[in-house]
């Protein structure tokens, strides 16, 4: 919902904190996920993720969430699905070129990033979307990535 997502961006710092608490919690659940099987839990986790993020961010389930680097404003709500900042068509009042009734997703994102502790992540170049990941859980992907990373580091550490 438009009003909710704008409220979220106004409280970007708060949601950043929540996410920083939530992510390690998810990662701690990794052994459980692993035992249940990622494929089996994909559907229910995806449903929860879609419900929560859909309500808060108007999440489009691109499957590669970048909210922490976009000022908590979901870039997939940009009619041009821009992942790296606003186009040159932003109106003088900060509204969208394509949807004049909507505030530019990236004008919002910039304001959100200024409120966040790690807001400077907005300056990093984001890779184009991998369309194979659409409609999959970004949370489970993050968990698996973190676990894999930790394992690799552990192995490298052991070798030294």
């Amino acid at each position: 919902m438009y009003r909710v997502r704008r409220w979220v961006v106004r409280h970007a710092r708060f949601f950043e904190r929540i996410y920083h608490a939530f992510e390690p919690m998810l990662v701690r659940l990794a052994p459980l996920f692993s035992r249940l099987g990622y494929e089996r839990i994909e559907a229910p986790v995806k449903a929860v993720e879609k419900g929560v993020k859909g309500l808060l961010f108007d999440c489009q389930m691109c499957g590669q969430c970048a909210l922490s680097a976009t000022g908590m404003s979901c870039p997939m709500n940009c009619p041009k699905s821009l992942r790296n900042g606003p186009c040159g068509g932003v109106r003088a009042n900060g509204h969208c070129e394509v949807k004049p009734e909507m505030r530019c997703v990236w004008v919002e994102g910039w304001e959100g990033s200024l409120r966040m502790k790690h807001g400077n992540l907005i300056h990093a170049v984001q890779q184009p979307v991998d369309f194979r990941l659409k409609d999959s859980s970004s949370w489970l992907r993050v968990v698996r990535q973190q676990v894999d990373q930790a394992r690799e580091q552990g192995q490298n550490g052991g070798a030294e």
Binding site: S81, N84, E97
Partner: peptide
């Protein structure tokens, strides 16, 4: 990036935007 399709003579066209100017 390109102007949105709504600005031109084929507003019924599918906007692709697979990449953005940065990528």
């Amino acid at each position: 990036t390109g102007d949105g399709v709504q600005a031109g003579d084929h507003p019924q066209a599918k906007p692709v935007f697979d990449l953005d100017s940065m990528s």
